[in-house]
């Protein structure tokens, strides 16, 4: 349940960044310094010609669906959804760690919304790990 809530929040954060990248949102609310726009206009904000934020939208949507599936009666007893959550959020956390490293070491600017997303994905990963341990000990 916690991971579903977090995934939904992360979905909106990445949707916001993606819409900005598409030009639908005029200016990013980012506080002073404009780090968000600096990061979001850097070449690292695109991967294979697709905005990184779009991968976030898809990833969070996937996490939300898996989290909700895991709550359904037919899946609630099974371990697969939790394993899928750990795997998905683990991969996403790895990718986010790489992006955060880029912010710190290459771009030298911080995008507040990207950090919010990094916090959310770390929390989802930890929550799903706790869920997995509980499932294993059952």
């Amino acid at each position: 349940m916690v991971s579903a809530m977090l995934a939904l929040a992360g979905f909106f954060v990445s949707l916001y960044l993606w819409l900005w990248k598409l030009g639908a949102v005029g200016s990013l609310s980012c506080g002073p310094g404009g780090g968000c726009e600096y990061v979001q206009t850097s070449p690292y904000a695109m991967l294979f010609g697709i905005p990184v934020a779009f991968f976030g939208v898809i990833g969070y949507l996937g996490l939300l669906i898996v989290s909700l599936l895991g709550l359904q009666p037919r899946w609630a007893e099974r371990r697969e959804p939790t394993v899928a959550l750990v795997a998905l959020s683990g991969a996403a956390l790895g990718f986010t760690a790489y992006l955060t490293y880029l912010e710190a070491a290459v771009i030298h600017a911080w995008c507040r919304w990207c950090l919010v997303s990094a916090g959310i994905i770390a929390a989802i990963f930890l929550t799903s790990l706790v869920g997995l341990r509980a499932a294993v000990s059952d």
């Binding site: 939904l8 929040a9 979905f11 909106f12 916001y16 819409l19 949102v25 609310s29």
Partner: peptide
């Protein structure tokens, strides 16, 4: 809430 936020941003 998230939808309203995105809508307001747009």
């Amino acid at each position: 809430g998230g939808g309203a936020w995105i809508w307001a941003s747009l």
